[in-house]
Amino acid sequence: MTETEPSGTPELPTEDKKLVTLARATRARTGAAQGAAVRDQDGRTYAAATVSLPSLEVSAVGVCVAMAVASGSTGLQAVVVLGDGGVADADLAIVRDFSGAGVTVHGGDARGTISTTTAS
């Protein structure tokens, strides 16, 4: 079970602010429902948007984690999800499956205003 704290617009660490910028830009560029960005254990970042095709549906977090796994990453340090619907339970499950408990997951609106911070 994860705990979510509504936090308005918290003061994020600098590295997490970079994830907000990447997620916001990716979502805006594609016009997707959500944009996400993750930072892996080595400090590499991955950004993606929701994929919604007739034959393929993948959340923005799912795409980010798939890219990290395909690049040889061994886990995540932080996740940002921006856009419609907030952070889905399925996305938290993806983060836990890949990285275990304790990964910081920030959720916010399309403008990048963070409204929730959750630990996987």
Rank of each mutant, 00 (worst) to 15 (best):
A68R: 10
V79W: 13
G43P: 07
S59K: 09
M1N: 15
I94G: 13
Q77S: 07
R24P: 01
H106F: 09
A66H: 08
D89W: 09
T26I: 02
T50L: 00
G100F: 02
A70W: 01
D84Q: 07
T30R: 06
R96L: 05
R29E: 12
E3R: 15
D16F: 09
F98K: 01
D42W: 11
G108C: 04
V103P: 11
V79A: 03
S120V: 14
L76N: 08
Q41H: 10
H106W: 15
D42A: 06
D16W: 14
L92C: 10
V81N: 13
G85E: 04
D42I: 05
S52H: 12
E11K: 14
T104M: 12
A32C: 00
V63G: 04
T26C: 04
G100R: 11
A88I: 01
G62Y: 07
Q34L: 02
L53W: 07
A37Y: 02
A48M: 04
L19C: 06
T9Y: 15
V87P: 04
G8M: 09
T9Q: 15
G72F: 00
A23I: 04
D89F: 01
T2P: 04
G62F: 08
V79I: 10
V20A: 01
S59L: 09
S71N: 00
S73P: 14
T104I: 05
V105N: 05
M67I: 06
A78L: 09
A25R: 12
V87C: 00
G86P: 08
K17Y: 11
V105K: 08
S115P: 07
A47E: 01
A49S: 12
D109A: 08
K17A: 11
G112E: 09
H106I: 03
G85P: 08
A33V: 02
Q77N: 14
A88S: 03
I94F: 02
G31R: 02
V58H: 04
S99K: 05
C64R: 03
A36S: 00
T9R: 15
T26F: 02
